[in-house]
Write a protein that binds this DNA or RNA. Structure first.
Lengths: 349, 349
DNA sequence: CATGGCAAGGAGAGCGCTCTCCGGCCATGA
DNA sequence: TCATGGCCGGAGAGCGCTCTCCTTGCCATG
């Protein structure tokens, strides 16, 4: 069966394998892709030939005809035109939030042989690059994590007819699938806990107003407190980073020295708040109870933070699953999946 | 010039652009790739045709002939067969260390139009996948960040003749380019500082012994202390995570209650050490001075950590630069670039 | 024994590019 | 006047696959 001709030269191709196995290119392709009926002894011969030649299929050639790459873009996107003190990439990758999302995505994609390509899209040019990248067929679809609600990227993707799934609902209605958390319900959990502990003077440090999740956490919290008979909740706006939590807490204490409970819109800021409280000599939770959000860095904090858990890895995996489904079947209707938060009680409240 | 024929259908190809511009495929290709002399008016016509058709070159077709993808693999690799309590991807991406390396790599690659593909290689199968991925021509080369010194991946890459650059010197000599830090010099900086502050009873919490960087930091520190007249430095081994720093410090205090200075092999463990010291009622730096390593999370710690700065972003960028050079010119000799650390004095020592 | 049906494997046409080769044209010099 | 050379642009091969068609041969059936 196997006519042992020397494989031409360089990297072996299908042709070489076919020659060694004494069959046609088509048959080798069939064996590799496991389609149709190929006689067992021929399969055997082909597999032997693949082993002896050390053949690996060329991805570019395959993509050229299948129109699939087995890659997806994992893009971190900002709104408008980013201008910060440090490069966008440093800011993004240093964030444990992004790390967990990436982990969840990779965990799902890996067993399925799909590879994520890291991309950033904080400026108009960068956004165009993402679109071009997808249109080139360098990736089959995109997973978008926006840092702001007003991100124009989702709209661009929809208009270009490219498969994509978002992390979190976009600020303005867009026909695109997304995965999100029931933020209001999560905030209500925090409110219930503070009231239950007997807090009477409750305040909040919210996230930036231009991201819908912040809005939802804030209004959800206010509503729940109103339901508990606290129609007014003092609040300051933060930017989700530790420093702003610290600064926010200082301001809150100065303006409302009798505070005995705070709901902070994420764990990083909550950590900052705890530091600020310590600077003012307030004990947590004895003098002031603190509840964070996300359950990201909460456990490593001193005291360990009571927080609203967001199942990020599950959400990220679901996002990836949805994207693959959309790629598989382009006619799949736009879908959204909302996850339920849970209160994780530790020591800070 | 431009004969306005309707572009056939679907995604426009070179052929369509050529037809609209009234030239040949080859000429359009020349304009796009900016090679050879094409008359200005024809360039103009081609560019107009590209704009009207909305043409984007197909990457797979291009790769097929150029044998370049414009992608590189960014792989986080472990030694042997990983088995941990949590998935490898969660552990990796949650680590601020990886985030900073990724940030540095992306910062360098982005302006050059090269895209990083995230890969993990903690088991033999995963390692084979990485090799296969590169051999398939899905990426032009690899950047390897190993979590252990005994990682077999570098050897596999060398044997397969694939372009790759490592973060940190491999445990056993391998003909492969890498970027590293002068760890011993960094540790000596820490030793000098502790001695200069007047510390007399100094201990250290090292990283895991199976990573060369830990070894170097430890032996560099011991040597420098010996040079200052302290031939014996008590030490415990950690695993670079916060908890192990905390546990290590507890043990150190128990065994050597009179400690007045500690050198900790990274910031995360140093944070843990600070917490442990607080639990024991020791003030930092008044009772015990603490010096970390990396300058990653040091600034956000309370008190802010004095630490040995490792210019991670620069190192990561250099790693990417080296890889592109190796891809560009395969005959480039194996190179290594060693960066110099710097002491960053904050409040903990 | 003729016929139909079906399974197995080969032939070959592309997929959308790049790049080498070649021909046409014009300017230049002998 | 004709040969020479340089510059432009076209023709066409080929990168390594997949997949549709088609041929071949075997067996069951009437």
């Amino acid at each position: 069966m196997s006519t042992d001709l020397p494989p031409s030269s360089g990297v072996p191709t299908l042709e070489d394998v076919a020659r060694v196995a004494g069959v046609s290119r088509a048959t080798v392709s069939r064996v590799i892709n496991g389609i149709r009926n190929v006689a067992p002894e021929i399969q055997e011969a082909v597999n032997r030939a693949i082993a002896t030649t050390g053949y690996v299929p060329n991805r570019a050639a395959r993509s050229l005809v299948t129109r699939r790459t087995g890659a997806i873009a994992l893009v971190v996107s900002g709104a408008g035109d980013y201008s910060g003190d440090e490069p966008f990439e440093s800011r993004v990758f240093a964030d444990p939030f992004f790390g967990r999302v990436a982990g969840g995505v990779v965990g799902f994609l890996r067993p399925r042989g799909v590879h994520p390509v890291l991309m950033l899209a904080e400026t108009p040019e960068a956004r165009n690059e993402v679109i071009a990248y997808l249109r080139q067929g360098s990736a089959d679809g995109a997973l978008i994590v926006s840092t702001h609600g007003e991100d124009p990227l989702p709209r661009l993707l929809v208009d270009a007819g490219l498969p994509a799934v978002l992390w979190a609902r976009p600020a303005r209605p867009t026909p695109i699938s997304y995965v999100d958390l029931a933020h209001r319900a999560g905030a209500a959990l925090a409110a219930d806990r503070l009231v239950e502990r007997g807090c009477r003077r409750v305040a909040t440090i919210s996230g930036p107003f231009d991201v819908p999740a912040s809005q939802d956490r804030l209004s959800g919290f206010q509503e729940a407190m109103a339901g508990h008979g606290h129609p007014y909740v003092p609040g300051v706006e933060g930017d989700f980073r530790q420093n702003s939590g610290e600064a926010g807490m200082h301001r809150l204490i100065k303006e409302h020295p009798d505070i005995d409970g705070v709901f902070v819109a994420n764990d990083l800021m909550a950590q900052g708040a705890v530091l600020a409280l310590r600077d003012h000599g307030r004990r947590v939770p004895e003098d002031v109870a603190v509840i964070g959000f996300d359950d990201s860095t909460a456990a490593a904090c001193r005291p360990p933070l009571t927080t609203v858990r967001q199942p990020m890895e599950d959400m990220a995996a679901e996002m990836a699953r949805l994207l693959l489904a959309h790629i598989e079947d382009p006619s799949l209707p736009v879908t959204s999946r909302i996850f339920q938060p849970a209160l994780v009680v530790r020591q800070s409240a």
